[in-house]
Amino acid sequence: MTFSVRPATSFEDVATMVGPKKKRDASVCWCLSHRVDAKTNRSLVGAQRGEYVRALTEREVAPGVLAYDGDVVVGWAAVAPRAELPYARSRTIPHVDDLPVWSVWCFLVRPGHRGRGIAHALLDGAVTFARDHGAPAIEGYPVDNQGRKMNLTMAYVGTRALFEGAGFTLARDTTSVAGGIPRVIMRRKL
C-alpha cells in the first residue's frame, strides 16, 4: 500500500492522532512527554496541552509527520532535533557522539489501519523530513523485542526491526526500557 506522508502542519489532524478522543480538554499525552521537560509537561493541563501543540504546528518546522490514506489521517510520528528534546539530557538514552542528530520517538497508527505498513511509511517520512531540514543523521530509541509480541501501548517507540528495515543500524545499547523491554539507539546517517 502507498500512503502519503506530510509535515504535521494541520492541528486538527495532529489532534485526531494524539489528542483526547472524547473530552477535548482532557490531560492526555498529546505526544508531549518526550518533547518537553518534566516540569513543563506537568504544568500543561487540560486544554493548555492542545494549545501548546497547536503552537507547534504553526512553527516553521512542524513537530512531526502525518500519514494519510487519501484524505484520511492514519498515522503520526514525532521528529525533531535531539537538542530541543529531553533526550538531550537523558541519563538512560546516552549520546552516541556530538553529531547534531534528529530524533524520531513516537509512532501512532489509528485502530483499523494497523498492519498495513503505515509505521514504515511514517519512519521513511521522518527520515526525509529530517534530511530536508539539514539533519546529518537521525536516531530512534526503539525496543529490541527480538520479534516477540508486545503490548501495543508500549510499541509507540517502534521496534528495532522497524528501524533496521528503514536502513538504521544499531548505534548503542541503553539502560532505558519500555514495557519491560530494553531499548536501543538506532541511527541512520543522512
Rank of each mutant, 00 (worst) to 15 (best):
D71S: 15
W76N: 06
D69K: 05
A26E: 14
V45K: 12
K22L: 14
L66M: 12
L66P: 03
S27P: 06
G19M: 08
A38G: 05
K21R: 13
R54E: 13
D69Q: 10
P81V: 07
D25Q: 06
L32Q: 05
A77N: 08
K23S: 13
G46W: 01
P20F: 06
E51S: 13
C31S: 14
V72M: 08
A67M: 03
V74L: 06
V18G: 05
G75R: 00
A78V: 04
A67V: 06
P63L: 08
V79S: 07
A67P: 05
V79G: 04
A78K: 01
Y87E: 04
A62S: 10
P20Q: 10
V36W: 00
D25S: 15
E84M: 11
L32H: 03
N41H: 14
R24S: 15
Y68N: 07
A67T: 04
V28N: 02
R42H: 12
E51F: 12
R49D: 09
L32W: 03
L85D: 02
Y87P: 06
A47P: 01
V72F: 04
V45Y: 01
S43D: 11
R59T: 15
W30H: 06
L66E: 00
A55R: 14
A80N: 07
A80G: 07
L66S: 04
V79Q: 02
E51T: 13
D37L: 10
S43P: 00
P63A: 09
G19F: 06
V45M: 11
P86F: 08
V65Q: 02
T57S: 08
D25G: 10
R49C: 10
D25L: 05
W76A: 08
R82N: 06
E58F: 08
R59L: 13
A77W: 00
V18W: 01
L44A: 08
D69C: 11
Y87G: 09
D69S: 12
V36N: 00
V79W: 01
G50D: 04
K39L: 10
V18F: 02
R49I: 14
P63I: 09
L85V: 09
H34K: 10
G75K: 00
V72T: 15
G46E: 04
L85G: 07
C29W: 02
A62T: 05
V18R: 00
D69R: 07
V28G: 06
V28H: 02
A67H: 00
D25F: 09
C31V: 07
A47S: 12
S33F: 13
E84K: 09
R35I: 11
W30R: 05
G70V: 11
E60A: 15
G64Q: 01
K23T: 15
L66I: 12
G50Q: 03
V53W: 03
L32E: 03
D69L: 13
V28I: 14
V61W: 02
S43E: 12
K22N: 14
